[in-house]
Amino acid sequence: MEKNATYTSLVALGDSFTEGMSDLQPDGSYRGWADLLAARLAARTPGFRYANLAVRGKLIGQILDEQVDAAAAMRADVVTLVGGLNDTLRPKYDPGLVLGKLEESVERLAPACGRLVLMHSPVRRGPVTERFKSRWESLFTFIDELAARHNAVVVDLYGARVLGEQRMWDADRLHLTADGHRRVAEAVWQALGLEPADDWRAELAPALPTGWLMRRTGDARFARQHLGPWIGRRLTGRSSGDGRPPKRPELLPYEPLPGDAGVRHERA
Rank of each mutant, 00 (worst) to 15 (best):
V184K: 00
R215C: 03
R108I: 04
L102E: 12
F142K: 14
K58D: 07
L194G: 00
R125C: 09
A207R: 14
L213N: 03
W200S: 06
E145V: 08
L109H: 02
L97D: 15
T177I: 05
V98C: 01
E186P: 04
R49C: 14
A178K: 09
L251M: 02
E19Y: 15
A71H: 02
N86S: 12
G218S: 07
H181G: 00
E137K: 11
L41W: 08
S16Q: 03
R125M: 13
T177D: 04
E255F: 08
T177L: 08
L208R: 13
A160G: 04
E107Y: 03
S138W: 05
A207C: 11
Y93T: 00
G20V: 07
N4H: 06
F17A: 14
T141S: 12
V11T: 15
A72P: 02
A187V: 11
P229N: 08
A76P: 01
D69F: 05
D172W: 03
R135F: 10
K3N: 12
L41A: 14
T18V: 15
F142R: 15
L174E: 06
G237S: 06
T129S: 14
L227H: 13
P258M: 08
V128A: 14
L41S: 13
I143D: 00
T88Y: 01
I63L: 04
A207G: 11
A152V: 09
R173G: 03
A70W: 02
V184A: 01
V123T: 10
E195Q: 14
L146W: 03
A71D: 05
W200E: 07
D170A: 15
A12H: 08
R201D: 06
S134H: 14
E266Q: 14
P256W: 05
R161I: 06
G228A: 13
G232N: 12
A73V: 08
R264Y: 09
